[in-house]
Design a binder for these strands. Structure first.
Lengths: 134, 134
DNA sequence: TTCAGTGCAAAGCTTTTGCAACTAA
DNA sequence: TTAGTTGCAAAAGCTTTGCACTGAA
């Protein structure tokens, strides 16, 4: 269900398309879907196939360079992430995202899972709200 | 992104199909997708359309009778739930689910969101692990 | 020169919708 | 009787795959 990610090797060739995706993601504080990124690149004048965007994002996520979440609409959204374990505080309206972490929550989750006899515990936590600007 | 659910009115007619879905869900401690429920009903000999299963599950979820989660594979899985706010401890292997709740986590999530200027805060939290039997 | 990478078209999947037939109340 | 339900077929959306072509190293 949520397999531990085994960091794959990074892509081997630096292509124009991969650089473009990489740049879009840089300095962006929101989650974006493959289709959104594809649209943005096209509007910017870059030529790139939707398939390539999908594949590039998957590679980057597999390599641990991106965080991926599933939206309520069934899409997969990506965002560059810092290493280490953390969670997200996401604006429902504009999508702005803040990375947060809370050791207390980690401990609570592990403790309650073990209490019920569960091992190899992991968890997903996303916080949603409306940010100041929205 | 995660709109507050406004509990719709429950279905108005008690049909054979809706009773069948209801019964499958009763006493089941795991999340099931629409397709899984459809399969189980068919194997049991009940005749029901996949479309009807989808619609019935949506109605029940809208009425607050079911919890819905998105699997990593992109499917929506449902499970009968108790009222009130709670989270799930899910077995990665067999799908067995335990409802858990932690006031401390709720407070933490709300606090950290407000700290960042977010209002109307909600959150999603699922804990995964391997249960004793697996 | 080579083989990873690209992108179009087509296929795959889950879920939703149109609509005529059906049925609970 | 009649309005809510059903279910097939078709459509909609997101994502993946087949495959011939392209281009980075």
């Amino acid at each position: 269900m949520h397999p531990a990610e085994s960091p794959r090797p990074s892509p081997q060739r630096r292509t124009r398309q991969r650089q473009a995706v990489d740049e879009i993601l840089t300095g962006l504080a929101e989650f974006r879907t493959a289709q959104q990124i594809h649209d943005e690149l096209r509007h910017k004048g870059d030529s790139i196939g939707l398939t390539t965007v999908y594949r590039t994002l998957q590679l980057m996520a597999d390599a641990g360079e991106l965080d991926a979440i599933r939206t309520a609409e069934g899409e997969t959204a990506y965002r560059r992430c810092s290493g280490g374990h953390h969670h997200h505080l996401v604006c429902r309206s504009c999508g702005r995202t803040v990375e947060v972490s809370g050791p207390a929550v980690e401990r609570w989750a592990t403790a309650i899972a073990e209490e019920h006899g569960f091992r190899e515990v992991s968890h997903d936590l996303e916080i949603f709200g409306t940010c100041q600007n929205c």
